[in-house]
Design a protein around this nucleic acid. Structure first.
Lengths: 196, 196
DNA sequence: AGAAATATCGTACCGAAGGACAATACGGGG
DNA sequence: CCCCGTATTGTCCTTCGGTACGATATTTCT
């Protein structure tokens, strides 16, 4: 699956291509093309310098794909805005080739790429108010069911969940049916409402 | 510098050795040995299934070394607890070999390894409710559309919404289609995610 | 050892959801 | 007066979601 380069700047696109390999990259410069051609789980590098790019418009795309926000003027508040919407990474747009490759490898591995300072800031500000007893329902679901719930929270369809977990769509339906019964609901929407 | 494997499970240690190379690894099974032999900046993989392992006891070690907490039943609250104490990463204990190598490479490179959901939760907690979530969207919808959204939040079906608003089901679909287009989503679930 | 839970996959069926064409009516602004 | 946004409703069609039967294999618990 190709890496999407979402930028208007030819220079930036060339830099990224040099780091990641031109054959792995697919340059896109407008939102319509991106939305049309985007595959679930695909990696997207977004140039935050592009006009009209705003974190508030991206939560759904961030849920479907691995979106890496790249800013030429990194700012912790901006990073928090993007990562809070589900972006998979936040880094300097003109990072070295090594760092860019590291970033892509990291998000393709399913984790997030965060600079040390940014994460440190998050942790400092969070220190003290950690308890957050949100996971009571997790004791009632199996590991596999929890993965399905996580995918569900991102708005994925059964087919997309199946692709992501590498199982048949039928199996996804089986997990969902079990979840519905466990929590006494009758569809995916009610399940998410119930789980909070 | 060797990678410290802190676990009681021989099977888990073997899995990690297979991924990282046995010659790079140093297996430790008790806290005293770990504290005595630990070098500053060293990478430590901690098996959270070990008895007596608690994030509250680790801030000092996390400050000295790159501590990666590995859980066989990953949970966001647990992740917050560890990262809040300075851990460099939080991941699934039985990740694939590729992912494990990636985790180690990332933390050795000075960055942090965090799951996407977990990071998003961190950001949301510190930012409270993000701006777009708490009512900015209301300016973009009509009064009738807002009523439909309110019903959607309760998990009602089109037919139920129609009964409640005393209109035809077809009209409910019309309102929903307009909402989907306004917010650039393709179904009710994505709409709710987008509206927060 | 046997039972229960878990994870996986198959086909068939039905209703819900959503889009593609519509149409009608009402009110405000140029 | 005409256009636009809003609200309303209709039919036709396709896809998606969920259930109802089913099956097999593994793991975990009793």
């Amino acid at each position: 699956m190709k890496i999407v380069l979402f930028t208007l700047s030819e220079a930036l696109a060339d830099t990224w291509r040099a780091a990641l390999g031109a054959e792995r990259c697919w340059r896109v410069a407008d939102t319509a093309t991106l939305a049309a051609g985007l595959q679930p789980g695909q990696t997207v590098l977004v140039d935050l310098a592009m006009p009209g790019v705003d974190a508030a418009d991206w939560p759904v795309l961030c849920a479907r794909a691995r979106v890496v926000a790249l800013s030429s003027v990194p700012d912790n508040a901006e990073g928090v805005a993007w990562l809070g919407r589900g972006a998979a990474g936040y880094a300097h747009a003109y990072s070295t080739e090594d760092v860019l490759r590291q970033v892509v490898a990291t998000v393709e591995g399913g984790a997030s790429w965060v600079g040390r300072e940014l994460l440190a800031q998050l942790c400092r500000q969070l220190a003290g108010r950690l308890p957050a007893g949100d996971g009571a329902w997790r004791d009632k679901v199996t590991a596999r069911e929890a993965e399905v719930v996580a995918a569900l929270r991102r708005g994925l369809s059964n087919k997309e969940i199946a692709r992501e977990l590498e199982i048949a769509e039928r199996t996804v339906k089986a997990h969902l049916s079990h979840l519905f019964e466990k929590f006494g609901v009758e569809d995916r929407l009610q399940l998410l409402i119930k789980l909070g």
